[in-house]
Computed example of a mutant assay.
Amino acid sequence: MIVWEQVHTERLSSGGDLAVRGVRAYVRRTLVAALEDRAHDFDLDDIDLMVCEITTNAVRHSASGDAGRGVWVTILVAKERIRVEIQDDGGSNGCPVIPPQGSGWGESGRGLMVVNGLADCWGTLPGARGRFTVWFEVTG
């Protein structure tokens, strides 16, 4: 059983388009403060990349990309584990999935492949009103 020492949840949105870099910056600031002297135990650059990929998917494929909309970000910190959850604003046509093998390396479709390669584990959770949460965990 994982005992989460800290839990940080924030709704991130803007008057215009949701800025992916703003979500990434929030997660980085929160983790640096939460980890204090343990930040070197985790690859924060990998976490930045995964946050960007998931948030970009939310902006592209859900109502999170509409003006004034956003995402819920939850960061859970345990002694040797971090979990980041990003919930979109709903409105997508389906569950976030990795594209089938052989679908090529087109302009899109690689985000969850990146998450799959960098995270120790990850997944999706359906929510109310068509919302989805994509989460990942890393160990330090």
Rank of each mutant, 00 (worst) to 15 (best):
S14V: 05
E53Y: 10
V23Y: 03
L18I: 10
S13H: 13
G123C: 09
L49W: 04
N116L: 14
A78R: 00
S92V: 13
W122G: 00
E137C: 00
G94T: 07
R69H: 07
Q101A: 11
D41V: 11
G106E: 13
D17L: 14
I47E: 00
G68R: 08
A128T: 08
Q87M: 13
V7R: 04
V134C: 09
L49Y: 05
L12V: 07
R24H: 03
M113P: 02
G127H: 10
S13I: 05
T9V: 07
D46E: 10
D17A: 14
S64R: 12
R69N: 15
V59Q: 09
N116S: 15
N116A: 15
G127T: 03
D66F: 11
T55K: 04
M50T: 00
E80D: 15
L12H: 05
R38I: 08
P99N: 07
E137G: 05
C52G: 15
L49G: 01
M113E: 15
R69V: 08
R129P: 04
E36S: 04
D45A: 15
G90V: 06
G104W: 11
D41P: 03
T9M: 11
T9L: 12
F136L: 08
I2R: 12
S92D: 05
S92W: 00
D48V: 14
L49Q: 11
C121I: 14
V84Q: 01
R110D: 02
T133D: 11
L118R: 08
F132Q: 10
G70M: 07
P96N: 03
C121A: 09
G117Y: 13
E5F: 06
H8M: 13
V138Y: 07
N57K: 10
A19Y: 04
E53G: 06
Q87S: 15
D89G: 06
S92N: 08
L35D: 03
E137S: 00
P100G: 09
